[in-house]
């Protein structure tokens, strides 16, 4: 199955992915109504920067997801596609998932008092963030393709090509 891959060397930190994510999780799913929505819709991924690198940090939907394992109320579950999603009505806002997510991609919805996280845009073929990225720093690919691409690059680098 195709997964989201991040290519940090291409990220311009334009935050188009953040905006698209928030829009996708807004009531009308259009930019202009999303910016007027109150309380505003929340993004589920975060463009972060450190010395010499900037990149969107996204939920991995970890195989052994600490958030899911530690959910004390039966809110988080793994859906049929393997995405870690929420049963929103079950979240009690205990923030245990936030405490255990090593990527820092779960946040609080202060209005609704529930945890907010990536749902991989499970209704869309291509997630909104990937679709919005103007430099293809976020791409959908089969893990094998990416591995092959990396190998090729490594060979080229070593052979000086």
């Amino acid at each position: 199955m195709k997964q989201i891959f991040v290519r940090p060397d291409r990220c311009m930190a334009c935050k188009g992915c953040e905006t698209a994510c928030a829009v996708q999780h807004s009531a009308d799913k259009t930019l202009f109504s999303a910016v007027l929505q109150s309380p505003p819709p929340m993004k589920r991924l975060f463009v972060e920067a450190a010395e010499g690198i900037r990149m969107p940090v996204i939920c991995r939907h970890c195989e052994d997801a600490p958030c899911l394992r530690a959910c004390i109320s039966g809110c988080l579950y793994r859906d049929d596609h393997g995405f870690v999603r929420r049963r929103k009505e079950r979240c009690i806002g205990c923030w245990t998932c936030i405490m255990l997510c090593p990527f820092g991609v779960i946040t609080r919805d202060r209005e609704k008092h529930i945890a907010v996280k990536c749902d991989r845009c499970h209704r869309l073929d291509v997630p909104a963030c990937v679709n919005a990225c103007p430099t293809r720093a976020l791409v959908m690919a089969e893990p094998e393709e990416v591995a092959a691409d990396r190998r090729q690059k490594a060979v080229r680098a070593e052979s000086g090509g």
């Binding site: 990220c11 311009m12 930190a13 334009c14 935050k15 463009v47 972060e48 920067a49 900037r54 103007p134």
Partner: peptide
């Protein structure tokens, strides 16, 4: 604001 948009920066 950090990170700032690379398109604007360039």
């Amino acid at each position: 604001q950090v990170p700032q948009c690379g398109f604007g920066e360039t």
